[in-house]
């Protein structure tokens, strides 16, 4: 591996901070987007419009705060992806296409999060002036976007998984099972395709399969990857003798 240009970089603090952004993202996403935005779990597809509209009207400030914070921190997902990409540079050599896919996948994941959050924010902006079905439509649009943008994130997961599988170290930065977990999560996301067809049951946006399982495997994803990314940065620091 080209070690000469690698050793020039010793900003491990910034690198680690970027890696921690995965956890910052998850914390913000769960509390501000999830809890304050009433998205954990969401209203079911068949929830009456008045129920959804009532939430926007009665908790408009909570939703505003939730979505403003969610939009502010959405980019931390991309920052995290860049930190992972730099570890991939060490694992499989600079400029590998799988690294590019991982970074771009993480970067583009920001877009649906940002845009769907802006929809929820829109609903909370003047809910008193909008009728129930309009507010319901805004809520639906946001959920359809965030769920069906799964493939963007799958690209990150495939890039990461297949990329780190090429790590030829005796003890690779990412264990095989983590790589395959990443690939599997990206693969299973395809179940999101069922979501638009249902308003109730296991495959609707709040159902056992489409929400609880799919989101749980995603929520477990970021901490696992962040843990191994931070460990790898520590190992690279030792290898470089910094």
């Amino acid at each position: 591996m080209a070690s000469a240009p690698m050793t020039e970089d010793n900003s491990y603090g910034a690198w680690k901070f970027c890696a921690w952004n995965g956890m910052i993202f998850m914390a913000v996403f769960m509390y501000f987007w999830g809890w304050l935005g009433h998205n954990l779990p969401p209203f079911a597809g068949d929830a009456p419009a008045s129920e959804v509209a009532g939430y926007f009207r009665n908790h408009s400030d909570a939703v505003r705060l939730g979505m403003v914070t969610s939009m502010t921190f959405a980019v931390s997902y991309a920052v995290w992806g860049i930190a992972i990409g730099k570890v991939m540079d060490y694992a499989i050599g600079r400029g590998h296409i799988l690294t590019d896919l991982q970074v771009w996948g993480a970067g583009l994941t920001v877009v649906p999060i940002l845009v769907s959050s802006s929809f929820w924010l829109l609903g909370s902006y003047r809910p008193e002036a909008l009728d129930d079905t309009t507010l319901q439509m805004i809520y639906d649009a946001a959920w359809l976007l965030i769920d069906l943008a799964y493939a963007v994130t799958s690209v990150q997961m495939f890039g990461l998984g297949f990329g780190f599988l090429r790590d030829k170290r005796a003890e690779p930065f990412f264990p095989k099972w983590v790589c395959w977990y990443s690939i599997w999560v990206g693969f299973m996301f395809i179940a999101e395709c069922f979501m638009p067809f249902f308003k109730g049951g296991a495959f609707n946006r709040s159902g056992i399969l489409n929400f609880w399982i799919e989101f749980s495997i995603f929520f477990a994803y970021a901490p696992i990857i962040t843990w191994y990314t931070l460990k790898a940065i520590g190992r690279i620091r030792v290898e470089n003798g910094d």
Partner: peptide, 26 residues
């Protein structure tokens, strides 16, 4: 074969076991 592939298979089979449970409950 490869132990990573077996991890994938195990995860996938766990998911399908859940599908079976959901079906039986329904």
């Amino acid at each position: 074969g490869d132990e990573g592939v077996f991890f994938f298979i195990t995860a996938d089979m766990a998911m399908f076991a859940l599908f079976f449970l959901v079906f039986m409950v329904g």
